[in-house]
Simulated scan of single mutants.
Amino acid sequence: MPNGSLDESLHLKSKRKKQLNLLERLNVAIDVARALEYLHHGLNTPIVHCDLKPSNFLLNHEMTGVVGDFGLAKLFPEAKAIVISRSLS
């Protein structure tokens, strides 16, 4: 990714010369929340990342956050069935 990881941007380890400002940090936090919401609720089989940390959250050329490194991710097909059964009761 062109802007590296969130970890690099927060700790000035990247080519970026300045720290993320408050609005950029807020937008990245929103991107993280949207990504987790999609993984947990937006798919037929929910996914739990299990290793979400700043170095696994990448920033594209528009500073939009993208979740990466799904090496420890777990699929939970039974979680969708539980949610559906609770909503029907």
Rank of each mutant, 00 (worst) to 15 (best):
F57G: 01
V32A: 14
S85Y: 09
L52M: 08
E8D: 15
L20S: 12
N27P: 00
H40K: 12
S89F: 11
I30V: 13
K74M: 14
L52I: 12
L88I: 06
K13E: 15
N44I: 04
D69S: 07
R16H: 08
P54T: 08
R34H: 10
S85L: 13
T45Q: 08
L36I: 02
L39T: 11
F70T: 05
G68V: 03
A29R: 09
A73I: 03
F70A: 06
V48R: 10
L43P: 09
D51K: 03
G65T: 00
S87Y: 05
P2Q: 10
Q19D: 09
N44P: 09
N27G: 01
P46D: 04
L58G: 00
G65I: 01
A33K: 05
K80M: 08
L52P: 00
K18G: 12
I30T: 09
N56T: 08
L59V: 00
T45E: 14
N21G: 13
T64R: 02
I82N: 03
D7I: 01
E24T: 05
S85T: 14
V83W: 04
L6D: 03
M63L: 13
L88G: 07
E78F: 12
S87C: 09
N60S: 07
H49C: 00
I47M: 08
D51C: 02
A81D: 14
H41Q: 11
I30D: 15
H41T: 05
K80V: 05
L58I: 07
C50V: 01
Q19S: 10
L75D: 11
L36F: 00
L43I: 05
I82S: 08
G42T: 02
R25V: 07
D51L: 02
F76Q: 12
